[in-house]
């Protein structure tokens, strides 16, 4: 005889919350919203005030702005993934499983930089 098995563990179940807990959740969402908006406004403001045409694409200022942009993007991405997608609340093994493959992306960037350098050198030698 087949037994009726409780399958509820396969789905994330709703849970009752105290008003304090609800308020804490909302406050966290609000804080992250403000942070993401502030970073976006900051990025746009920097892009308008110190625009690439004004400071020059090869200048040190633009290099600094460029890396600031990349760091800010990673901060934004971190907040979206960890708070909005709740990855910060998942188990450590799941977090590792999801984030570890992205080492391959860093490797990909590295080999494409090498490849790009080679192609640029090749094109220069051909044009000479």
């Amino acid at each position: 005889m087949i037994q009726e098995i409780d399958q509820s563990f396969q789905y994330s179940q709703p849970h009752a919350r105290t008003p304090e807990q609800s308020r804490a959740v909302r406050k966290k969402i609000l804080m992250v919203t403000l942070l993401l908006s502030a970073i976006t406004i900051f990025e746009v403001a920097v892009g308008i005030i110190w625009s690439k045409t004004h400071v020059g694409a090869t200048s040190g200022t633009w290099q600094l702005i460029k890396y600031t942009y990349i760091v800010l993007t990673l901060i934004k991405a971190g907040y979206i993934v960890l708070v909005f997608m709740h990855l910060g609340d998942e188990s450590k093994s799941l977090r590792t499983t999801i984030l570890l493959p992205f080492i391959l992306i860093i490797y990909f960037i590295w080999i494409m930089l090498i490849e790009g350098n080679d192609i640029v050198q090749y094109l220069q030698s051909v044009l000479k």
Binding site: P14, H15, A16, R17, V25, R26, L36, S37, I80, F84
Partner: peptide
């Protein structure tokens, strides 16, 4: 900004679903 705000409303929808 529009996409970030719609992401926030999605978080709130998920949160409402939890309760």
């Amino acid at each position: 900004f529009i996409l970030i705000i719609s992401s926030v409303t999605m978080v709130l929808a998920v949160d409402a679903g939890h309760t």
